[in-house]
Design a binder for these strands. Structure first.
Lengths: 164, 164
DNA sequence: TATTGTTATACTCTATAACTATA
DNA sequence: TATAGTTATAGAGTATAACAATA
């Protein structure tokens, strides 16, 4: 979830085309790291726009999905899955509970922890967000092409798993 | 520059492996958008660590490179190239000037604007950062493999250029 | 009037550290 | 002592709007 913010970013200047007076990107243009970032930012922004159309922040999508797929997950487990500190999740969960999308129940076995679950409302919202995400994915699939999709996805996973 | 922040992120939970009790990622695991993000965050974090070793924030790299490659560029042009609002660049440039990496000179032709250039010190710092970036790139190249590199890079550019 | 860069302000996402209430 | 979650606080990066100087 998140990382890059969620507010309205303006269109960014890809490789010089369209940008005032053809700015030179030098070696940046050839580097995986730089282009990975540009691609991610552009994609995130596009998804962000779609989410905002249904009044949701894009960052909520991953959180809701993780709760939906792991009913009764604790906040600490959730924070590990999302790769964030538990304290970062407090306001997020609080917001979801306040808006009636997620319910929290103390565990019987460990009264310190909560079980998180989606409410009916939360499931409805997740369905809508999933629809957004699917349209977004179709768009990405179209750009990548089905011939390369599998390989491309595998490489993204490989980077996340093996970097450093 | 930036997008995702630059401070010390903890290790994120890739696809469930290593994460407490195998959290299920559901459809997320199959989606380009999600994996693009995970890959970018992991890669950025790795580069961030390398930059921090030489006492620089990772975000400065793109800024310094853009100035180096476009000597005398104005702040507004720079902000367009970086895809950020001009006001976002004020504190960045200010920091670079304060630390003696960048010099600013009023343009003769337009007394409102500044020409930005690297100082000798700035060039030295950029050289160091470039060295970090190259090591980082070699790491990414190793992960991706030279057979797929070109195609992978092309697809990243295509996403940035064509998304929505 | 329009543009360059600054200032004031605010927002999002994130982290660390200290705290509480349990365990 | 250790862990789950909260609170307090901070920081990076970004944006919008209003402004002064200049065009």
């Amino acid at each position: 979830m998140s990382g890059t913010n969620g507010s309205g970013r303006q269109r960014r200047g890809r490789n010089g085309e369209g940008v005032a007076e053809s700015v030179k990107f030098g070696p940046l243009a050839l580097w995986i790291g730089f282009n990975l970032r540009m691609a991610q930012e552009a994609a995130f922004e596009a998804f962000s726009r779609r989410s905002l159309e249904i009044g949701e922040s894009p960052g909520r999508f991953a959180t809701l999905t993780l709760i939906a797929r792991n009913p009764g997950i604790s906040q600490t487990e959730l924070s590990h899955a999302a790769g964030r500190d538990k304290s970062s999740l407090t306001p997020v969960v609080e917001d979801l509970v306040r808006r009636g999308l997620v319910e929290r129940n103390r565990m019987d076995t460990d009264r310190r922890a909560y079980r998180l679950n989606l409410t009916a409302e939360g499931k409805k919202t997740l369905t809508q967000l999933t629809r957004c995400a699917r349209r977004h994915e179709r768009n990405l699939d179209r750009i990548i092409g089905m011939r390369d999709r599998k390989r491309f996805l595998a490489l993204l996973k490989k980077i996340a798993a093996e970097i450093e």
